[in-house]
Every structure is written in structure tokens, then in C-alpha cells.
Design a protein around this nucleic acid. Structure first.
Length: 293
DNA sequence: ACTCAATGAGACACTACTTC
DNA sequence: GAAGTAGTGTCTCATTGAGT
């Protein structure tokens, strides 16, 4: 039984990271000298902004998704790899695909051999306290879900959404070769309701085939977090079998970027205009504005 | 009908790292 | 050294809601 994202995985992240990093690189220190992953809601004391954890969690989650995907595609003889480079579709050394599923092994790929591109946008979701007790040794305690701290993890942040959308558009418009490759975004949080309609529009337009959460129970207690949006632009997987079924079906279907559209020229024109913006976030924003008209 | 507080979106800032 | 990656805090502004 393969487990999806949850508290156990986050605990493992901290345990592993503490072997190569100091607690001060991974936790905030409150005025009461407590070590916490996020500033708790209501904390008014002096705060700082941690940067050192970002690359750790970024690397960890991309590797974690890659491992998860490998468990699905290994029986088909395919490969999931982090940091995949394919310059002909704008996946350069400095801006590679977070994870891609490919026919051949290795990080350098031709467009024809890439079956699925995955953009990973995952964070620490729960809040954690690190206690280094002199007698009992170091200990990690979960002190609440994302509603109890001040951060907005994963795709709950609007600018993380825009970054994901912008990067995907950039790949989509890079070349004809990119038009057949499905692109999905994987996170471990719900999305805010102001993006429900947008993710469905983006899926309908064929730019991104879906925003997926691999965190079945992001909220403690009665978890009524979003399962899916109306058009399944957002979908939360509750089990390994569920995600395996989806990934297998997306790999089998011949998805053509242009097939999902009502009016090819219109969408093409919108993407071209959006792509003139100079940053990923602005591209994403411009696309959203135009597609809603 | 008014003010005040809370909330959320989006822009911007920041540090650390990698690649060109 | 410029420009890309990463995630998360700060700030402003607009909207919403509660209490009068």
C-alpha cells in the first residue's frame, strides 16, 4: 500500500533534513525560543523570513513525486525523472521540467520521448514544533493544519498558481512538438475558490490538463476539503490506486493540445498575446484575463 | 448609515542555490 | 554577474462583515 502525502511524509522530511541542516535552517524561532515550521496565527512577536528551507523542501517534493510516478510507470517500462531538459520545448538547463515521464532513461530528452510533464508546487502543509529535549532527545510535534498558521502553502497562494500557469504556457507555445505533451501541476493543498473557475477554463483550453493534489486529508478533524472542481480542473487524489488509474489513462490517450478547443485560432491568439508578457506570472495573468472574455 | 477589523489577492522582497 | 530555480514573509489595496 503506497501512502500519499500526509503528516508522516512531512515528519520524514524534517527528520532527513535535520541530518544535513541545522534546526535554525529549517524552523523559525519564536520569542519564547520555540522552533516552529510556520508562524502560528495570532503570533505577534518578532518575525523573520526563512529562506534556507525553500530549496530543501523543493528538492524533496520533486524527488518524492518522481518516486511516486516511478511506482506507477515502472510496469510499463517508462521512467520518471526530476530536472528533465529538452531545449526544443523551452525546458532548458536553468528551467527544466520538475518531473517528466519519458520513454528513455535520463534527464536529457527529445520532445518525442516525453509523455508527461509535471510541475510540482508543494510545501510543508501542517505546522510543526521542534523540541530538543535534553533528556529525551529531539522530537517533532505537529501543532496544527494549514488553517492554524500564517503561511499559504502550495497552490493556496495566488502567485504560485500564476507561476505554474505561466511556465506551462511557455512550454505550450514553444513548439508544435510540445502541443501533444500533457502538462499537469501537482500540489499538496486545496486551491482557493477564486481559482475554481480558472482551473476549469485552463483545462478546457488545453493548456494544463489538471491541477492535482496528492494530499488526501489536508485538514485535521472533519476534512471537507475540496475533492474536485466542476470541470475537474482541480482534483484531489485519495489513494495511490486512484492516481495510478489517472496517470495510466493520461499516458494512453493521444492528447493533442489543439483537440480540446472550441476555436483553435482564438485560443492560439490569446496564448500568443499572453506570451508577449515578460515574466511567467504576467503571462499567466494575461492568459487568465483573455480567456475569461 | 457609519466605522473598524478581518480577510484575501496580488505585487514585491528576500536568500540560497544553479546554470549560462 | 545575470538570470533562472525554489518557497515564504511583507505590504497595499479592495472587499466583506460586525457592531453601533
Amino acid at each position: 500500500m503506497v501512502q500519499l502525502w500526509g503528516k508522516d511524509v512531512e515528519r520524514k522530511f524534517f527528520e532527513e533534513s535535520l541530518k544535513i541542516a541545522t534546526p535554525e535552517q529549517l524552523f523559525y524561532v519564536t520569542e519564547n525560543n520555540e522552533y516552529v515550521a510556520y508562524w502560528p496565527k495570532g503570533y505577534k512577536g518578532k518575525k523573520s523570513t526563512l529562506q534556507s528551507r525553500n530549496s530543501f523542501i523543493g528538492t524533496f517534493t520533486e524527488k518524492w513525486i518522481s518516486d511516486l510516478m516511478n511506482k506507477i510507470v515502472i510496469e510499463k517500462g517508462l521512467f520518471a525523472t526530476t530536472g528533465v531538459v529538452c531545449p526544443e520545448i523551452e525546458l532548458t538547463e536553468s528551467s527544466p521540467a520538475d518531473v517528466a515521464i519519458t520513454v528513455e532513461k535520463g534527464k536529457n530528452q527529445k520532445a518525442e520521448g516525453i509523455l508527461l510533464i509535471i510541475e510540482v508546487k508543494m510545501s510543508i502543509v501542517w505546522n510543526w514544533k521542534y523540541i530538543n529535549d535534553a533528556k529525551e532527545g529531539p522530537k517533532l510535534v505537529c501543532i496544527g493544519d494549514f488553517r492554524t498558521h500564517q503561511g499559504n502553502p502550495g497552490l493556496l497562494r495566488s502567485d504560485s498558481m500564476l507561476k505554474a500557469i505561466g511556465k506551462s504556457i511557455n512550454i505550450r507555445v514553444s513548439s508544435d512538438k510540445a502541443s501533444k505533451i500533457p502538462i499537469i501541476v501537482i500540489t499538496n493543498t486545496p486551491i482557493t475558490n477564486s481559482y475554481y473557475e480558472k482551473v476549469d477554463n485552463i483545462k478546457k483550453a488545453g493548456v494544463i490538463q489538471g491541477f492535482f493534489s496528492v494530499n488526501p486529508k489536508p485538514m485535521d478533524g472533519l476534512d471537507n476539503s475540496l475533492k474536485q472542481t466542476e470541470g475537474k480542473g482541480y482534483y484531489k487524489f485519495d489513494s495511490f490506486n486512484e492516481i495510478r488509474g489517472y496517470i495510466n489513462s493520461i499516458l494512453q490517450s493521444e492528447i493533442n493540445f489543439f483537440s480540446g478547443m472550441k476555436n483553435k485560432e482564438e485560443i492560439g491568439r490569446i496564448i500568443e498575446i499572453a506570451n508577449k508578457e515578460d515574466s511567467y506570472e504576467k503571462k499567466g495573468e494575461a492568459f487568465l484575463k483573455l480567456i475569461k472574455r
